[in-house]
Structure formats: C-alpha cells, structure tokens
C-alpha cells in the first residue's frame, strides 16, 4: 500500500516535471519563431533605413541631389534614412544582395539584375523615368552631324552597368547597324555621366553617351557650356530609374515611404525644390510591368554584358 502510494507520488512528480519541460520547450520554440518578428517591429519602431544610390555623378553632386528628399521623408514619416554611396554600380548591386541596404535607387539595367539575383521589388519612380532618354555628346566645334560619320573615332560610355550611359545607347547603336567595338577605333568607359561629358569637353574622346537628365542639368547649372559641348543625337524614350526595396522590408514602412513620395507636389514651393533637384515633376507607383521592354532588351544582350 505504502509502496503503491510512493509510486503514485513519484509518477505524479515525474509527470509534472515532464509537463513543465514540455512547456519550457514549447515556450522556447514560440520565442524562436517570434524573435524575427520582434526584431522587425523594433526595426520599424527605430525607423532607420539604409538607402543606396547609384554613383552616376560626383559624390557632392549626388549628396546635394538626394539630401532634401531624405530630409522631407524624415519630416513626413519619421523614418530616418541614411544615404549610402558606393564606389561603383557593381558595389551597389552587391550591397543590395548582401542586404546591407534596405532600398536603392537603381537604373533600369541594374534593377533587372537586382530583381533576378535578390528579388528587388519596385516601389516608386519619377515621372521622367517612364520616358527617359540618352544623349550622344560631341565637342561644339566638331562639325559632324550624324553618328555614322564617327566611324573610326573614339566613343565613351558611362559605367558598364548604366542603363542610360551604356545599355540603351549601345542598343540604339545596334539598332542602326553599328557595333561599337568594330565601328569605333576605341570604346572606353568613364564610370559616370558627368565624367563622360568632361571627357568629350576635354577632347579625350570624340563621342560620349550619357543620361539626358544629368547632362541637361549640367547645362542648366552652367557646369557644361554650350560653346564647348553639344548634343549630337537624343535616343528614343525608354523606362529607366526606379526606387526598389528589399522583398522582406516591412510592408507598413513600404506603404508609408510610397505615400510620402506620391504626396510630393510641384505646387508646393519647398517640395518643388526637392523635385527640381531630382529632375522630376513628381513620383508615380512603379511596377514590374514598367520594365518589361527593358527586360526583353536585357535578354537579347550578349552574355558577357548580362
């Protein structure tokens, strides 16, 4: 009898311990599942994002272009955004792939790569990005009027990963039956649009392909002089830049970011300054479909360029 009651007591104690252990394991499991969620919430509460931009111009020029926008976003949403300017286009893509930046302002070409390699999601784009173009620059004293007249000359593209400084000018040259590598005596890559313009101005190359918005702003700001450099030809329009985010960025943050960008209006004086800096009339929601044409061009590129 005594023996029986001892066994019962032992069993009851044993069951209690087991139940406690199970509860502990369950709690730990629940905690491990919830931890990333808590981390996300903490991140959202901290509202600190890293924003990568294309190094398509000189660093101070880029900082002056984006600083008012980031200040505005902070004012409107409370989200603190730190700007990251990598050394080159490839580095920007790498930072995005490594999740070291949360959002990035990509060119179309590099965005497609980021989408293929890191599932980048398009968020917003400037109105001008739907009708973007590239320009071919020559020295103002060069009297040749057509691209075909530049056979055997030197050509400069911007960065290899630039849409408006390389991919699209190359595509439109190909459309006209010009293969840059065989048509021109030398093809060089300057690394950025403004550098291409300087190379043309300084006579380092005969012809340069660059982003039309950057070049027109350089003319407007007096950095380029119409007596030194002129636009030989402007390409047809295509879709270019886009603000893209990481696929796992908190949807609430994405929504607030998009909303603040869409709210920008050229009718409000302070906001017009922000938009002018970006060469935009406003922001539009972006989608995958906007890049369908560019994706087709990208798929037709030689493998070494993809």
């Amino acid at each position: 009898m005594i023996f029986n009651s001892r066994i019962k007591r032992y069993l009851s104690a044993h069951q209690t311990i087991q139940a406690f252990r199970r509860l502990l394991w369950f709690g730990l499991l629940l905690l491990s599942v919830q931890l990333p969620v808590f981390a996300g919430q903490a991140d959202a509460a901290g509202k600190h994002l890293r924003f990568g931009v294309l190094p398509d111009s000189a660093r101070d020029f880029i900082e002056a272009r984006y600083a008012p926008l980031l200040q505005y976003i902070k004012q409107e949403t409370g989200i603190n955004i730190q700007m990251v300017v990598p050394e080159n286009y490839q580095k920007l893509l790498q930072l995005f792939k490594d999740k070291k930046i949360d959002l990035a302002f990509f060119g179309g070409y590099i965005f497609i790569q980021a989408q293929q390699q890191a599932d980048a999601r398009p968020l917003a784009m400037r109105d001008i990005d739907l009708h973007f173009s590239s320009v071919f620059l020559v020295r103002a004293d060069n009297d040749r009027q057509k691209l075909r007249e530049f056979k055997g000359s030197t050509l400069a593209f911007g960065s290899r990963l630039s849409t408006s400084g390389h991919l699209m000018p190359r595509y439109f040259l190909n459309e006209r039956g010009i293969d840059p590598e065989t048509f021109f005596a030398e093809v060089r890559y300057s690394g950025s649009h403004d550098q291409t313009a300087y190379w043309v101005r300084d006579g380092k190359v005969d012809l340069g392909a660059a982003n039309s918005v950057v070049i027109r702003k350089m003319f407007r700001d007096g950095i380029l002089n119409g007596n030194e450099v002129r636009i030989l030809w402007e390409t047809p329009v295509y879709t270019d830049y886009v603000l893209a985010v990481q696929p796992d960025l908190d949807p609430n943050l994405q929504s607030r970011l998009l909303d603040s960008l869409l709210a920008l209006s050229p009718l409000v004086r302070e906001q017009r300054r922000i938009l002018d800096n970006l060469g935009a009339g406003g922001f539009l929601p972006a989608s995958d479909a906007d890049f369908a044409g560019l994706r087709q061009i990208f798929a037709r590129l030689p493998l070494e360029l993809q």
């Binding site: 109105d127 209006s265 009718l267 406003g282 922001f283 539009l284 929601p285 989608s287």
Partner: peptide, 23 residues
C-alpha cells in the same frame, strides 16, 4: 495650367496604384 497638370498627375498616380494592385 499648373493646377490642371497637377490634377492630371494625381489622377495618374491613383490609376497606377490600382493598375498595380489589380495586377
């Protein structure tokens, strides 16, 4: 003219939001 342009832009923003959401 600026106001008409702005209303037009707002309309396009709303249109694209719905086109994207629908897609």
């Amino acid at each position: 003219p600026a106001l008409i342009k702005s209303v037009q832009f707002r309309t396009r923003q709303l249109n694209r939001l719905h086109v994207n959401a629908s897609a």
